[in-house]
Amino acid sequence: MPLSPAGETATRVLITGASGFVGRRLARRLSVEGAGYEVLSLGGPGHADQGRVVDLTDAAATADVVAELRPDAIVHLAAFSSVGQGAGRPHEVWASNFDATRNLVEAASALEQPPRFVFASTAEVYGRGFNDGPRDEDAALAPASTYARSKVACEYMLTDLAASLDVVILRLFNHTGPGQGEAFVVPTLAAQLARLDPAVAGEVRVGNLEACRDFTDVEDMVDAYAAVLADPDGAAGVRIYNVGSGRTRSIQSVLDVLIRHHGGEVVVTQDPARMRASDVPVNPGVFDRFRGRYGWAPVRDFDATIAAIYDHERGRAQGASQGA
């Protein structure tokens, strides 16, 4: 069946990690009436509210659910995605990222009509290579964390095991928005500020504020996934794309926007525990390949994204204080 939302038959899209930060947004986007998709949400243990539940590290269970659902496309978002937390939990990272991806792609390859496979990788695969300048998709890989190494391994594994599939690997640069976990830099800064009383001076503990990152609003990233699903290549093989805004900004500039939005006096204290040994000063990317293929570019103002994250965290903080 052609992967086109314009067709009479809906394209069946299986989203792993459907209960996650990106997954729930993508599921909502594709579920809009008239979009042409039937969304098959797959959550991990503990997320029974989000469609089917399966432990992707269980090969037999994964094969059974994929055979039952028979998707036309799979968007594989489920992962252990925190670089910092992953440093101390390598077994969990490798099981959640590599083992689960292998099980899923083997189950997909076994179907009579193999589905399209969209894999969420990361710009972290370039590691310290960013110190040599902007990275395009042909640049050498130099992963500097357990998380990044597991994603590189997945990319190689997909090249070897997914010969019958149309595979799109997206090397995603930093993306954020309201509701992202505090393991990530913008939400953790926003959450600390949101818990302070603007009328009283308070402290925020930070890592490396000089680091510069390519940030994109999460809804723009969802647009990127939607563009991939709407315009398939159709041929078996692996295609790799960088996806990001093309604009880097310092963590200091993000904190400045948050403090202005907070409106109170803030003491900023550097916390050695928040410094990452693998940090690179800046992570510039080259995004011509993806934009040329899919015509995508981010459209949302990132200062507005930062403010929205603060407002979300402020609401959470106020709700927590009222419930105490």
Results as ranks from 00 to 15, higher is better:
Val53Met: 08
Val218Gly: 00
Trp296Arg: 00
Ser4Thr: 15
Ala48Asn: 09
Thr248Glu: 04
Ile74Trp: 10
Asp64Cys: 10
Glu92Ile: 03
Leu170Gln: 02
Pro187Asn: 09
Gln113Ser: 15
Pro45Lys: 11
Gly315Cys: 06
Asp99Cys: 10
Trp94Thr: 09
Thr57Lys: 04
Leu229Glu: 01
Phe130Val: 05
Pro71Asn: 12
Ala199Trp: 08
Glu106Trp: 01
Ala100Gln: 12
Ala60His: 10
Ala108His: 02
Gln85His: 12
Pro134Ile: 02
Val228Ser: 05
Ala18Thr: 02
Glu210Gln: 14
Glu112Ala: 15
Ala236Gln: 10
Leu158Glu: 09
Ala18Arg: 04
Leu14Asp: 00
Asp132Glu: 14
Arg276Trp: 05
Ala308Ser: 05
Pro187Glu: 05
Gly285Leu: 02
Arg293Phe: 07
Arg28Glu: 15
Ala199Ser: 14
Glu137Met: 04
Ala235Glu: 15
Leu42Lys: 02
Ala183Ser: 12
Ala211Gly: 03
Ser4Arg: 12
Asp223Val: 03
Val299Pro: 01
Phe184Cys: 03
Asp64His: 12
Leu229Gly: 03
Asp220Tyr: 08
Val125Asn: 02
Ala18Met: 06
Leu170Pro: 00
Pro2Tyr: 03
Thr122Lys: 06
Asp223Leu: 00
Gly177Phe: 00
Glu210His: 12
Gly264His: 12
Gly43Gln: 11
Leu209Asp: 00
Gly237Arg: 05
Phe98His: 14
Ala211Tyr: 03
Leu40His: 01
Thr305Ile: 06
Ala308Thr: 00
Glu68Ser: 15
Gly36Met: 09
Ser41Phe: 00
Val282Phe: 02
Ala183Gly: 11
Asp197Ala: 13
Pro178Ile: 02
Asp271Tyr: 08
Ala10Glu: 12
Gly202Ser: 13
Tyr147Ile: 02
